[in-house]
């Protein structure tokens, strides 16, 4: 029960931080509102489709819960650090827009800030990747390969 409460608090913290950041961002960049509406709209369509086929929905949720349970069981210390890494990663990366917006760092030191964010973010993500690979084995490798392909594709689209 205590564990469950911990899980809820952790997720509530993530959701609250995300919502606060999105609201702050949209307040400054209201033109990006459509960009943030696409996700909820697609999610709604996805939810409706799964509600029409409840057996698929249940199977989907069961699979994620099983994966999460095995991560908790097999991950050991990595699982514990992974949660801390997740929160720290989020805070580190989203520090940049705040620093930029309120000019908290003089422009000549911005390169040091970029380097710090890069090193911290990559280090923290290695903890998460190690945890995923340790728990999920070959499925973890496939999952990360798919994410790499999507990231490469998006980067190519961004620069062309």
């Amino acid at each position: 029960m205590q564990k469950k409460r911990e899980d809820y608090v952790f997720v509530f913290l993530l959701v609250a931080l995300t919502a606060a950041f999105v609201l702050w961002h949209l307040q400054l960049n209201p033109q990006q509102l459509p960009y943030f509406l696409v996700g909820p709209f697609v999610a709604l369509v996805f939810a409706v489709l799964l509600a029409l086929k409840p057996e698929y929905g249940r199977r989907f949720v069961d699979r994620i819960r099983r994966w999460r349970a095995s991560q908790e069981e097999l991950g050991g210390k990595l699982f514990h650090y992974q949660r801390i890494a997740l929160i720290l990663f989020f805070i580190t990366l989203l520090t940049y827009p705040i620093v930029l917006e309120y000019k908290l760092v003089p422009s000549q030191y911005m390169s040091y800030l970029v380097l710090t964010i890069f090193i911290v973010a990559v280090t923290l993500s290695f903890i998460v990747i190690a945890d995923v690979l340790k728990v999920s084995g070959k499925w973890g490798i496939i999952f990360i390969t798919i994410i790499i392909l999507i990231a490469v594709l998006r980067m190519l689209l961004r620069f062309h």
Binding site: D7, I64, V122, V128, A151
Partner: peptide
């Protein structure tokens, strides 16, 4: 609620991996 908490965490983990690969 338990399902929601699990999915949010799993999904955000995927976001973290994705963004770090972009970096």
């Amino acid at each position: 609620m338990a399902g929601y908490a699990t999915c949010v965490e799993a999904c955000i983990t995927a976001c973290q991996i994705y963004v770090s690969i972009e970096l």
